[in-house]
Design a protein around this nucleic acid. Sequence first.
DNA 1: ACAGCGCATTGATGAATGTCGAATCAGGGC
DNA 2: GCCCTGATTCGACATTCATCAATGCGCTGT
Lengths: 120, 120
Amino acid sequence: MSKVELLPVLEPDADAVPCCPPLSERALTAEESVRTAAMFKALGDPVRLRLFSLVASAEGGEACVCDISDVGVSQPTVSHHLKKLREAGLLTSERRGTWVYYRVAPSVLAAMGNLLATSS
Amino acid sequence: MSKVELLPVLEPDADAVPCCPPLSERALTAEESVRTAAMFKALGDPVRLRLFSLVASAEGGEACVCDISDVGVSQPTVSHHLKKLREAGLLTSERRGTWVYYRVAPSVLAAMGNLLATSS
DNA sequence: ACAGCGCATTGATGAATGTCGAATCAGGGC
DNA sequence: GCCCTGATTCGACATTCATCAATGCGCTGT
């Protein structure tokens, strides 16, 4: 039984990724590239990107799997992709009763957006 | 014909990718997901992301292949990855004499950044 | 307790990907 | 013309990946 957290955002989570100086400013090191590429890779599949956008744009910031499963692939495949997104640190999941809810990991969107920021 | 020239950015180029409503705002369609995922996928490899960052952070906005080839893989592999980035619309290349110079495709960084924009 | 539903895991398979060495192409200088 | 250097292309190989059907697990009513 894990901690039941009700705080919506901004608790000091361990898997936060502070990794990101804007790309236009400084080249990434080899190690930074590995960690950051894993996130881009997670969004680099059409089905996953669609699932992620469905969660990111969902009411209340979260979505039940049953609400986003209609993306043209089988149910196990949806589960597989959601797992990948979780492992990449992009989504978090929580079971409440019958359903499992996914939400976007806080600070991850901001970090990636910052990385691609147009400093020009 | 009002000739717009010399503007550093924002000229209406053909390969611009207008694809992008912020993710937090609206879910992507299947077709949008395919096109956009291709870009994330291109950045989803450590070597490619590093090469891209080297070009993006280079002096004058461009870099010779010879200047960014030291990323731990063979030179044909570097060329292969640069081609992938070119095909994804993220980089453009130009040969000047002996060397080939790469630069970041304008408006692509902005489009991807916009997609990940934190509307919160 | 049992049946039913939601979601995750397993195992298998065909396709895509990253990597290299060798060969090839393109320019510049001798 | 000939060679040297920079860069791309080719062929091959091992690994990873996306996908599915079948199965397992957790929870909820009845």
